[in-house]
Amino acid sequence: MTLRDVADTAGVSISTASLVFSGRGPVAAATADKVRTAAQSLGYAGPDPLASSLRQGRSGTVAVIVEDRLLHAFRDPFALTVLDGLAQELDAMGQSMLLIADPGGEEQANPLAGHALDAAVFPLCGRTDSPFVEHLLARDIPMVGAGSPRDDRVSHVLVDERGASRAATEHLLDLGHTRVAHVLMPLGPRHSTRAVAPGDATVELERAAYPDARDRTLGFLDAAPDGRLVETAEADVAEGERAGRLLLDVPPGQRPTGIVAQSDLLAAGVIRAAEALRLDVPDDVSVVGFDGVELPWLDHRLTTIVQPGEPKGRLLGQLARDALAGEPTRDVPLEVTLRVGSTTAPPP
């Protein structure tokens, strides 16, 4: 059965029947019901998507490339809000989302090679460069990112990571803290959380694989050049707790009174470490996060840098839409703000 058979049975034009199935045009409810009833009686399941893509010259699919394993992305509430915003925009465009995990191993086959794609989006924090860029360029597929991969041919939604991290650190300094520390997301692939010696910081930052972690560290050092640094192996609560113990399980005179973490999950881990050591937050130690996600299981209103995840995802989708329409695209800034909660106070 074909769409023409359905249209003839329903007594409508083939273009009207097509609009009913695509949902992209105004069709009277009674007419739409006639078309659906005709389709059901004929056993017609809908237009062949392959034939439709051949006619339109489009696959109807956008690759959404997620750094590392999908497991980590779906554990991060901020990543989920970005993906949700992006999915809403793609759905409104009639595009489907193809999630691709980029584990980063050069020896692995290119997971994009076997897929017909209209565009590609790098929605989350990733490496400075990506082996996918040249492959996508060779296929003339437009690319959109959230700060990485760093390439002039990729349009980005950009956050002033360095300025935001500096503002978070200055908040602690303005409260009177003089011993401050910074808990980093991984600067590159790591297997364990570790302290970064002050003399090694410059070298570590120069060879950092992840630009967001590097820029947030630079922002902290702009405001507190003598602050202590701990780099984690993963931006999650468990690694934040390990970093917190490294910083706080020391004699009181060596203990930082203020800690800036590069994500809210890391900040939550630092708070867990402080409480396990019987330190009060914020009376003994103040903690600042980054992202502004909801953490209902945390018994604090976190002081944090709020970057709105869903609007960020929507902006990524809008950039992809403009690129697919053949319009020139450019980098778009995303404003972030400091939200003062209950986890910061003057030092003891």
Score class of each variant (00 low, 15 high):
A167P: 08
M143T: 02
I259M: 03
D68W: 03
G85N: 00
R4I: 04
L99Y: 08
D91K: 13
L247C: 01
G289A: 02
Q88C: 10
F220N: 07
E134K: 09
L54W: 14
L315E: 02
P347H: 01
P186D: 15
Q262G: 02
R179H: 15
R339Y: 14
Q56R: 13
A167S: 14
S148M: 04
T31H: 10
D299S: 15
L173M: 13
E241W: 01
Q40C: 08
S148C: 08
V230N: 04
T31E: 02
R190C: 06
R75V: 11
S41L: 13
D284T: 01
R150I: 11
V154S: 03
A167I: 10
G258S: 03
L277N: 10
P149Q: 02
E231I: 08
F74H: 04
V6T: 03
L324V: 05
D226F: 02
Q88L: 14
A235I: 01
D299T: 14
F74C: 10
A109Q: 13
A116D: 10
A45L: 15
A274W: 08
L98K: 04
L19V: 01
P49W: 12
A164W: 09
R301P: 04
P328R: 12
P256I: 02
L99P: 13
A273T: 06
I271M: 07
V340M: 14
L279S: 03
L218F: 14
A7N: 00
E106I: 14
A30L: 07
S18G: 09
A274V: 12
G292N: 09
D129M: 04
H72T: 09
S130T: 09
A29F: 06
F220Q: 03
T16H: 06
E67Y: 12
T31V: 15
A119W: 01
E294P: 11
R150V: 08
D174H: 06
D249K: 07
F290R: 00
D48I: 10
R153Q: 05
T304W: 04
M93T: 04
P149V: 00
V20M: 01
I271C: 02
S22D: 05
E231N: 03
R301N: 12
F74P: 12
F122W: 06
L295Y: 10
L83V: 15
